[in-house]
Design a protein around this nucleic acid. Sequence first.
DNA 1: CGTTGGTTTGAAAGGACTCAAGAGGGGTGG
DNA 2: CCACCCCTCTTGAGTCCTTTCAAACCAACG
Lengths: 248, 248
Amino acid sequence: MQQKFVTIFPLKTIEIKSAWQGVSECEKCSIRSSALFAELNEEDFSKIHSPIDDLSFDANADIYSQGDHAGSLFTLRNGYIKILHVNSDGSERIVRVVLPGNLFGMEALLGDAYEHSAIALTNVHLCRIPKNIITSLGEESPRLHRQIVKKWGEALLQSESWFSEINTGRIEARLARFFLKLAKKSGHFAIAPLFKREDMGLMMDVKFETISRALASMADQGLISNITRLSVQVPDLERLKQFSKQGT
Amino acid sequence: MQQKFVTIFPLKTIEIKSAWQGVSECEKCSIRSSALFAELNEEDFSKIHSPIDDLSFDANADIYSQGDHAGSLFTLRNGYIKILHVNSDGSERIVRVVLPGNLFGMEALLGDAYEHSAIALTNVHLCRIPKNIITSLGEESPRLHRQIVKKWGEALLQSESWFSEINTGRIEARLARFFLKLAKKSGHFAIAPLFKREDMGLMMDVKFETISRALASMADQGLISNITRLSVQVPDLERLKQFSKQGT
DNA sequence: CGTTGGTTTGAAAGGACTCAAGAGGGGTGG
DNA sequence: CCACCCCTCTTGAGTCCTTTCAAACCAACG
């Protein structure tokens, strides 16, 4: 019932960069400072023997699905990913949005199966880290272990703060906070990404029509402009901030 | 079951058991199998030098507040605790409910300040673990580190699942899921705890009057009975489960 | 026995949902 | 290159659920 996209393979993932082996690239990784291996030194890298693949996915592609065997965790390099939880009654809810630099799929370290589904919201670029690298390297490198604890903690805090801010109050205020979290300055304006209205509804627990109406209403009020499928402009971040606190 | 606590000071916390030092008690702890030190052996315990205090608090007492210096983490032995997040606009939201055996306040391991407030929902009994025990012991004991990662992961999963199930759909369905999570069998019935309506509203993002009305309505439908301030009876868990999936 | 904090209940207003129709965009095949 | 189709997004009107503001109620406690 979901969107269908044309795939060459009946399978779900599309890999456009070839996998590569070894450690040299990790050491030069542009997002390394914020990534899992931030604190590792050369000696640590020399202990990595399994391949860390560098993968790309199209928007809407499944990275993994709830219940899949969990053999790897991932670092997102760019793009956005939604973490979807399917409730026992079949209803769905987006429990986290993964931002560049974030780790996801850490359930792999705890159990055999993923607890959620991870689906690309945009075209994405990510690293797949086999769990055995962590478990074996972890024995020897307290630095890595510390980093994992830290990353995990950040994920929890992000999840809780996301939850608290994106799910409290009227929709318009929630949308405002959502924009404030994701907006990036670009010249005189700030630009915030939009996702499918359906997805945004799943994040905030409202129907997609409600998202659409709220966007229109906020545009009427001059809080945002140039609504497209993929983004909005925020002319005045400060004003939006005020709005997110007040409600009117 | 809950012993009576005598309030001597006007202050918020009351300690009824004297603090104690050393490791001997942890080894015999009744909830140790589910607690942080589950996997430790005698050698590990011998390395613990800071005192782990065993504390009690009355309902409504603050365990710590958002922004406080974070010097310890905690294991809840019995009772319930709410983890409250104060948004930048002053609005509040309960992001997690701590159940017996759960770890909380792990932010202490990451930064200097607590990110949330922890407040007792009932009379509680908990262990306070100074962070330096973890950081120093962690260097030497991979078992402890593993256990921390595991606990942290559980907290994230619990938070996400709580979020997903307690915050999706109509209030009555959400309340039903809430009862299913917390109900315990007691003879022919199951009994689920209730908290202050205001608190329940903060968990589910509705006003306390709405909670009250939803409880009344569910009682009319025979889904629950014997509503008091502190608990409800659930005559038929299976039926409640059906209800939580359907809605009507 | 009156105060107090918490809970319930009522009525009207407001926000979100449902069902439905129409508009816009991007991709496909002619 | 254009026409068509499908998917997504927008908009409308009526209904349902939640909020708001009030008032009454209740149990615990001094």
